[in-house]
Computed example of a mutant assay.
Amino acid sequence: MNNLEKLTLIEGNFTTEEAKEILHNVFMTKIKFHEHKNFSSIERFGKDDATAVNRIPELKKELQRVNEIFAWAQQHHKRLHLSSEIQISFIEE
Rank of each mutant, 00 (worst) to 15 (best):
M1E: 10
M1K: 15
L4S: 13
L7F: 14
T8K: 12
L9W: 13
L9C: 11
I10D: 02
E11T: 08
G12C: 08
F14C: 02
F14W: 05
T15Q: 08
T15V: 11
T16A: 15
E18L: 10
E18M: 06
E18K: 08
A19N: 06
K20Y: 13
E21M: 12
I22R: 05
I22V: 13
I22M: 10
L23A: 03
H24S: 10
V26F: 05
V26H: 03
F27T: 01
F27Q: 00
M28D: 08
T29A: 10
K30S: 02
K30P: 01
I31Y: 02
K32C: 04
F33T: 04
F33D: 02
F33M: 05
H34D: 05
H34I: 03
E35G: 01
E35S: 03
F39C: 12
F39E: 15
F39P: 04
S40D: 14
S40R: 15
S40I: 09
S41H: 06
S41P: 05
I42S: 08
E43D: 12
R44V: 14
R44Q: 10
F45W: 12
G46W: 11
K47F: 10
D49K: 08
D49P: 04
A50I: 14
T51C: 10
A52D: 02
V53Q: 04
V53R: 05
V53F: 03
V53H: 04
R55P: 00
R55Q: 04
P57A: 00
P57R: 00
E58Q: 03
L59Y: 00
K60M: 00
K61Q: 04
K61M: 01
E62Q: 06
E62C: 02
L63E: 00
L63H: 01
L63D: 03
Q64K: 11
R65S: 07
V66Q: 04
I69W: 04
F70W: 07
F70K: 00
W72F: 15
W72V: 07
W72P: 05
Q74V: 11
Q74H: 11
Q74K: 12
Q74W: 08
Q75E: 14
Q75T: 09
K78E: 06
K78N: 08
R79E: 12
L80K: 02
L80A: 06
H81N: 11
H81A: 07
L82F: 02
S83E: 13
E85N: 08
E85S: 08
E85Q: 10
I86Y: 13
I86M: 09
I86R: 11
Q87W: 07
I88N: 07
S89R: 13
F90E: 15
F90P: 03
I91H: 10
E93Q: 12
